[in-house]
Design a protein around this nucleic acid. Structure first.
Length: 396
DNA sequence: GATCCACGGGAATACACGGATG
DNA sequence: CATCCGTGTATTCCCGTGGATC
């Protein structure tokens, strides 16, 4: 490559990177270490967890709030902070600190129900947080992992508080199931169920989180804008408008903001224009699902979704869409079809009846539509995979 | 101690059946 | 009744692990 080319690349990289200063600060799937404007709720949650300060286990807690109200952010942030104070040696490499002779320990473990769907995966997730050894990812039975967990918690001065996030979403381990899995260690472990509803048989404390009010959401967005975007890339009026549109749902607001930033970067613009925001807002479905849902899926499923978002005409029966997707690499058409129905079943895509043209005599086909913010998904999935298929230029 | 192999979990795929529709 | 969609499930494949074997 010659010098002109080098310089041109520098220039375009700078142009592309103008708007976004720090992608992680902007990402709707990354939580803040200090949630914005949620002090009272944090206090309530600390109240519910109060017994841990006396070396006891709290009774079960439920953290309940509508979509986009920040329940995950609150619990994640608080558990991280509590771990700093109470946690024993984590799995960080080089845990040579006083092997075996540690004092009382309380681990605070968050398990993301979206990523942990089987008992095996659940035990593995908890174990790898509280144990110093590596935990096998396969080749060993579920019972074996359960025994290791019991073993790890066998000492009376060792306790754990396990938060199960998104316990009430489809395809996740329910809170009831989690408690069942924890029965062998129930006198050592307490649970915190995080979701939009209480677990059915919940007895214990409930911390209710309400949707953000307009000005609170403005603060949340402003916080992201100030650290994630270049100065002057987005005006305060636009932030207020965005907050009003999102109607208390921080996920929708941040997904639209992130999407608009992606579009502006792709344009090489140095600020986010209103048409960027408009397109990004249209891309966030009403009553859609969190972009973290598709992002938590296996790589193959994400590839299918990526291909789906790249198809121009989705106005076709599922069967045809499946073949079209299968044609661009991916698994076989049959498998793609299977995936699409499965994804429709758990709400990531929606089946919509296709009334147009019915030459055949059989049952009427339907098509599928994405129920997640596709611009944000495309940008975040690309960085997660960043293998094969180098579609977009990655300008990190 | 090095090598081999059986096992377990999970994903991909195949397949078959039930139901809707003309 | 013929046809095709939608779904439940059986089967196959893959791979990491850890104990058996030599």
């Amino acid at each position: 490559m010659d010098l002109q080319e080098r310089i041109a690349r520098r220039r375009s990289a700078r142009r592309g990177g103008r708007v976004v200063v720090d992608r992680d600060q902007l990402s709707p799937v990354v939580h803040r270490a200090e949630p914005v404007g949620r002090g009272p709720v944090l206090e309530q949650l600390l109240d519910a967890l109060e017994p841990v300060f006396d070396g006891e286990l709290p009774s079960p807690v439920a953290v309940v709030g509508p979509a986009g109200s920040g329940t995950s952010a609150i619990v994640t942030a608080l558990f991280d902070a509590l771990n700093e104070q109470f946690g024993g040696p984590s799995r960080t490499i080089g845990t040579t600190t006083r092997a075996g002779s540690t004092g009382p320990v309380t681990w605070f473990v968050t398990v993301d129900g979206r990523q942990v769907e089987s008992p095996f995966a659940f035990y593995r997730a908890v174990l790898s947080r509280i144990s110093t050894d590596r935990v096998p990812e396969s080749g060993v039975g579920t019972d074996e992992l359960r025994e290791r967990l019991a073993d790890r918690l066998s000492r009376p001065d060792r306790r754990a508080v396990v938060a199960i996030d998104h316990h009430d979403e489809p395809e996740t381990l329910g809170a009831e199931r989690v408690r069942e899995l924890l029965t062998p260690v129930e006198d050592r472990v307490s649970t915190v169920a995080v979701g939009q509803r209480e677990p059915d048989d919940h007895r214990g404390t409930t911390v209710s989180v309400t949707a953000y009010r307009d000005h609170e959401l403005v603060d949340v967005i402003t916080d992201r804008v100030s650290t994630g975007l270049a100065a002057g890339a987005l005006g305060h009026d636009a932030v207020r408008e965005l907050a009003a549109w999102a109607d208390g749902n921080a996920h929708d607001a941040l997904a639209a903001l992130f999407g608009a930033a992606v579009l502006a970067s792709e344009d090489g613009a140095d600020r986010i224009e209103s048409h960027h925001l408009e397109r990004a807002r249209d891309d966030v479905p009403d009553d859609g699902v969190h972009v973290g849902r598709p992002l938590a899926l296996s790589e193959t499923r994400q590839r299918v979704l990526l291909a789906l978002t790249e198809l121009e005409s989705t106005d076709r029966p599922i069967r045809e869409i499946a073949t079209a997707i299968a044609d661009r690499s991916s698994p076989t058409a049959g498998t793609v079809k299977r995936f699409l129905y499965e994804l429709a079943d758990c709400g990531v895509v929606e089946r919509v009846p296709l009334s147009t043209v019915t030459a055949g005599s059989g049952r009427q086909p339907s098509t599928v539509e994405a129920q997640f913010p596709t611009i944000a998904f495309r940008a975040l999935a690309a960085t997660a995979a960043q293998t094969s298929d180098e579609t977009g230029r990655s300008s990190d």
